[in-house]
């Protein structure tokens, strides 16, 4: 297919791909989540290669994201090739400030800090996580695993509101 794209069209397409919402947490785009690693558009052949990295090995959203990217690219009459890469492993550090802010406004505490690299001591964790509703630091962990692989459940002791926390990995 001999589609000739202008630089502007390429930039627009890239932006459209980056703006695709996460299927589980639609308030954050896959770019703000930090899972888009590379987009390359071959303007001559019309092949768009997108490289993404999963947040967790078994994250079921990867398939939905891949399909959404292919669909977006096909709308422009182009072919998409979506690669998933595991290395280097995704970390919550790659999440943008804008992404963190949208999570907080949505009622999910953004990942705070990173886990220590060394051995994790046994015992109850004393990590402080701010409540996304009232901002209080008086919160406690209810469950280390939430509705999706990337979240944990917490409760605010000040406003009594339960909330989800995006786990820092």
């Amino acid at each position: 297919m001999a589609t000739v794209l202008t630089a502007l069209q390429v930039a627009e397409l890239e932006q459209q791909i980056r703006d695709i919402p996460d299927p589980e947490i639609p308030v954050i785009s896959i770019d703000d989540l930090g899972i888009v690693r590379d987009i390359s558009v071959d303007a001559d052949s019309g092949l768009v290669r997108v490289t993404i990295t999963p947040t967790y090995s078994g994250c079921p959203a990867v398939q939905a994201i891949t399909d959404h990217i292919s669909w977006t690219v096909r709308q422009q009459g182009l072919e998409a090739l979506v690669d998933t890469t595991l290395s280097p492993a995704w970390t919550t550090d790659w999440m943008s400030e804008k992404g963190r802010e949208s999570l907080r406004r949505f009622g999910i505490a953004p990942p705070s800090g990173t886990r220590p690299a060394g051995p994790v001591p046994v015992g109850l964790s004393v990590r402080q996580v701010a409540c996304p509703t009232c901002g209080s630091l008086e919160t406690e962990e209810l469950s280390r695993f939430g509705g999706t692989a990337c979240k944990a459940l917490r409760r605010c002791l000040s406003c009594r509101e339960p909330f989800e926390e995006f786990k820092a990995i």
Binding site: P54, S57, G58, F145, G147
Partner: peptide, 12 residues
């Protein structure tokens, strides 16, 4: 949820 999540990681 926890055991389901752990299983999902392993499946991945």
């Amino acid at each position: 949820l926890a055991l389901g999540n752990i299983g999902l990681d392993l499946l991945g």
